[in-house]
Each structure stands twice: as C-alpha cells, then as structure tokens.
C-alpha cells in the first residue's frame, strides 16, 4: 500500500502542526496516524496540533480515529489540541449524536491552539 503524502507537518518549538487534508479515507487516517506517531517518537515533541480547518466532513469513524490518536499521544505524554473545526463539520457531528470526549482540547484557530499549548506547558 502506498503511503498518503498529502499531510503537511510543520515543527515549531518542540511541537507539531499537522494540517489534515480535506477528505480522508479510512486508510489515509491510518497512514496519518502511523506517520505522526513515529515522527513524534523520533523527534523530541511534547505537543501536537491537529489542524482541521481544511477538513470538510467528519463521520463517526473519523472522529473516533482521531479520538484514539489523541489518547495514544496522551499515553506518550504528548498534549494534543484540535483546531479549526468548521461549523458545517461540527453540525454534522452533533447530528450524528457523536459522544464527545470532554478531555479533548479544542481551540477555534491555530493562534488560540498555540496559546493553549504554551499555557499547558508552563
């Protein structure tokens, strides 16, 4: 299986910013998970920002996959913050009656996400 390289990862001050693609298949989510967990393990990382601002649709499976990724990072001692969920995406998730994990940290945009990350690091 060929790896999905459509995900951009930026490193700033010991943290990752992962820009997620507009559409994700189940396989590409698995690829993204593998890629970022390995990269986080190799480099000295203590915070990850998942940028959803390009994502147009999230179903129950996608949500649960990212919840799992967040839990995996929590186990590795890495803080995960979700940023930039679009109104349409949120509307869809609420419509699907997805059980939202209150432990997940969410910020409205990248700026607030980085501020949140810095605050929790201190």
């Amino acid at each position: 299986m060929e790896a999905d390289y459509r995900t951009a990862i930026t490193v700033i001050e010991n943290s990752f910013i992962v820009a997620l693609p507009a559409e994700m298949t189940n396989e590409s989510i698995v690829n993204i998970e593998k890629m970022i967990t390995e990269k986080a393990y190799q480099t000295n990382i203590n915070g990850i920002i998942l940028n959803f601002s390009m994502v147009t649709v999230i179903d129950t499976y996608t949500y649960q996959a990212f919840e799992r990724i967040t839990n995996v990072f929590a186990l590795m001692g890495i803080q995960t913050i979700w940023v930039g969920l679009r109104p349409g995406v949120v509307f869809g998730l609420i419509d699907l009656d997805v059980v939202i994990n209150p432990k997940i940290k969410i910020a409205i945009n990248l700026e607030n996400g980085l501020a949140l990350l810095h605050k929790s690091k201190r």
């Binding site: 109104p87 949120v90 939202i100 969410i106 945009n109």
Partner: peptide, 12 residues
C-alpha cells in the same frame, strides 16, 4: 446541551 456540545467542538 447539544448546542453547548457544538460550541465546545468549535473550541469555544
């Protein structure tokens, strides 16, 4: 409750 859940997802 649904509305508050949605705002939380928006990071608000």
């Amino acid at each position: 409750i649904k509305i508050t859940k949605a705002t939380k997802l928006m990071g608000c």
